[in-house]
Write a protein that binds this DNA or RNA. Structure first.
Lengths: 210, 210, 210, 210
DNA sequence: CAGTAATCGAGACGGTACGTCCCGTCTTTAT
DNA sequence: ATAAAGACGGGACGTACCGTCTCGATTACTG
């Protein structure tokens, strides 16, 4: 379940792996990420700061990116508010991530993971379930709204999640876009409007004269 | 205007920069990108294939990523169909990019640019206007729809573009999502629905008992 | 004592430096020197031929010249004959070096070391003790001659060594001079003559009429 | 006669070569040599400082070393004193060169020329006559001494020159030796002694017991 | 309680890309 | 034809980082 291999280790003979080292390594990763950015993150620096050896590192994770991912995975999941106000709940959870990205070293590392994922199947395998899990709180909010009748029963959750997060991620990571609370509120309000009213019929326009 | 420095160069004294070299370099970049992927792209390989020297390369672009960007910038802009069917026009232009990303070397390189942008101000400066320009065709479609009356006059274009492209980019680059034509059609239909009906009022739900 | 850092290294923690690599590198240096001359000697070629990485090379020596010096230092010292014939002994040892310079790759590299020494304090530091040590065999010959009474007891050894080697080095490295055995014999015979008879009084000539 | 090709140029059609440029280039060479040493001497720097183009430089001299040599060749020849005191005359001319080497940029460049000569036939061809010419003043002193009867009539001039200059060059360029006036005086006194008394017989020592 | 075996810190290793530097040549317009 | 300016191909350099490996020293369990 965890990214870490240490915990799942079968208890055989020989010296057991040190949990302290493991944490020191991930802590060091976060510190360097915060201080010097992803470009300044090297395995040697991590080892030096964590007072661990590189073999201790590579025994646990096959590459630098996996370490970043493991460090990322230690951050607590987004917490869905589940009040009875859909828009506010969505806004809250969206702001949680935006703040996380803007205020912690993880923001700077996310593009690196995305990049690495694109040509590293091993990392994709590790990253995808983590991403998948991160979508869950949003789905919980949507399910509650459906139960309350605030959204149609046949709402496609995956599509809804993409509609919500797509523009946010775009503005946060891709493009230097407006992610103020006001802008996000409007954005979400339009998305929710689309979800409530459902997709438009296949042909829009062209029937004006009629 | 262009990414290239050679074209815009004032015609002073000294030997002018070779346009032939410039194109050979960008061509070589694309070829290697196609053949070996972004990870296999090195400045030495580019120089060898383009029969150019590394100094000729570095005289023009300060890093590999700038070269990729310049190569990317040579690809023709997406072509808006501008029929009178908004949904079809959007679907068409979205599919254009999805095909471009999936069928050309540029798809593999895009995550690299995003990643590099995140910690390289110099690249950000070069990349952002390129991205900005790429949003224009979508805006043209939206403007036509507004003129036809298929969209409200006060539609926020930037917001609309983000709503359209956010989920698509998310599924293409971030997450291994469904970008089949059917899935995209549904996605766009919901977005357009939201745009037509406008944002929901600030409070959704909570008024059930009333 | 040795140029090599590996041998003298205190046996601390960590993987010890590989003596095999060290020798492979110096062997490769000599081979390339012999095959392609000093101009054809590059660190990449050495690394490739020695199947070592450039980091392994640069961990030991700070520059190409230091490597050449280390390779040079592995050649056996000149062997003083120490018969009871001073002139023959000197001629023998001088011919040993002349042959070494003319028949091994070191000859071609020596000017390079001299050149580099002249503007590289670090190399000077490494080179000087090596040169100093190389003067010893000649001094041994001179000391024997003094003991036998063939040279004055107060003979200045440093001066004698310079008188002997100066002209030889000049003809070998600087100027395309005659270093045949006959020429060297005459040269040494005059030097020894000077050493035996001692310096002339401060004023030569000017007292002719007396 | 001169190292420069400019002067000997046949006066054909077209713009004549600029003598001003030529001098500016050699001046610049000396300045950079003095300021940054041979290692810091590059053709680009020379061109920039002389406000000349690189083609102007390479039209005259085939390589950097030839330029240094041409700059060197502009320095006045050593001036033989030709008093009636052989030892003093030799000491004077030797000190002239020692001072030149120690006090002008040429000292630092000399090892470079020697080095380059060793693997550059073209430079050897240019350098050797210059060196040869520089030996002339010493020979003049020796000839005067022979005429005065201070040296044997059959003194071998080439050998004598090598005996005199060899140790001096050795101590100046090769080895960090003593080139104080006192040390040089002693050195020369022994050499002159050898020249006056002539070579020792072929066998020295070995007849002790007899 | 000795033996076995996996772990630990330290740091060297092979490999490889990077970006810089310099050389000597070439291409442009202006004298 | 030569001048200044400066781009060009070529190629070496020394640095940096990756992920692996080799040491001697620990630290558990297993017999």
């Amino acid at each position: 379940m965890s990214i870490s291999t240490a915990i799942a280790q079968a208890r055989g003979p020989g010296r057991p792996r040190s949990l302290a080292s493991e944490e020191a390594i991930l802590d060091a990763t976060m510190q360097i990420l915060a201080r010097e950015g992803y470009g300044g993150l090297t395995t040697d620096k991590i080892a030096a700061l964590a007072k661990a050896s590189k073999s201790t590192i590579y025994r646990r994770w096959p590459s630098k990116e996996h370490m970043v991912l493991a460090a990322f995975d230690r951050s607590p999941p987004l917490e869905p508010k589940n009040s009875d106000d859909l828009l506010n709940d969505l806004l809250d959870i969206v702001m949680q991530l935006v703040d996380l990205i803007r205020q912690t070293p993880l923001g700077g590392a996310l593009p690196a993971l995305v990049f690495e994922r694109s040509h590293n199947a091993q990392l994709a395998e590790a990253l995808d379930p983590v991403i998948e899990r991160r979508r869950e709180p949003t789905k919980a909010i949507l399910r509650s709204a459906i139960l309350r009748g605030d959204l149609p029963k046949n709402t496609d959750l995956e599509l809804a999640v993409d509609l919500i997060w797509g523009p946010v991620i775009l503005r946060t990571i891709f493009t230097p876009g407006d992610v103020s609370i006001g802008a996000l509120r409007t954005l979400l309000a339009v998305v929710v409007s689309g979800l409530i009213h459902g997709p438009v019929p296949l042909r829009i326009g062209g029937a004006h004269g009629v």
